[in-house]
Amino acid sequence: MEPIMIKNAIALLLLAAVGAIFVSLLAGYMPDEQLNLTARYYAERTAQDIGTANIVTAIVVTYRGLDTLGEVTVLFISAAIVGLVLAQGRLPTNVPGSPQQPRVPVGELLSTGSRLLTPLILLLGIYVFVNGHLTPGGGFQGGAIIASGMLLLLLADPLKHFSHRLIDVIESISGLLFVGIGVLGLLYAGGFLDNRLLPIGTLGELFSAGVIPLIYSLIGLKVGSEFSSMLASLSETEEA
């Protein structure tokens, strides 16, 4: 038998065993009929305690805000590392000054479309994160939308340079503010990342839910800038 076949066979064997574990998980799974303790608490208390219409947002930004801070940090260091690494070395063949390969020109449709769509996309992104506490969506989604706008720009003009400096500043300042708000919560409210620094306001209004809209906006900015930074870094490896 070929080694590769043995390897595949072993892989199948192992995965069959893992599959068996999954099957027993699946077999033992009974969907809940009632909300469990935690979920029930959120369902009952979110409106009055946090003041967000979107309960998921309350969980993401406040109840489990530390997680969110962590994931923002994940993105932050991923972006930092990718940026650092990709800036460090270039493919050895692409020595500066070597003749650039002719690029396939970008289509008219794309370049025009991008000019038209990008502002709209950015606007949508901002809308999504600003309204994160009210409607489905939030900082991450909004940030991703913003980044997609950036991607569109890059597709339209692969040689386009973003100001890394600007991205960094946005990223850092939004991160700092996020932590800062968290610490303020610790000092002036119930605890780290407590949203009740600001009044909760009325459920369903834009300016409600304490600092959640603020935080989610910061997250949106941060995520957007981080994604953009990664995209930019990755695309620069291509062009140079």
Binding site: L35, A39, R40, Y42, A43, E44, I55, I59, D67, T68
Partner: peptide, 19 residues
């Protein structure tokens, strides 16, 4: 809400997991 909505926690978690 208690009787109408699904469990929000996994949704919050999945967001983190995706990122």
């Amino acid at each position: 809400a208690v009787s109408r909505i699904i469990d929000p926690v996994p949704q919050a978690l999945v967001l983190t997991a995706i990122v």
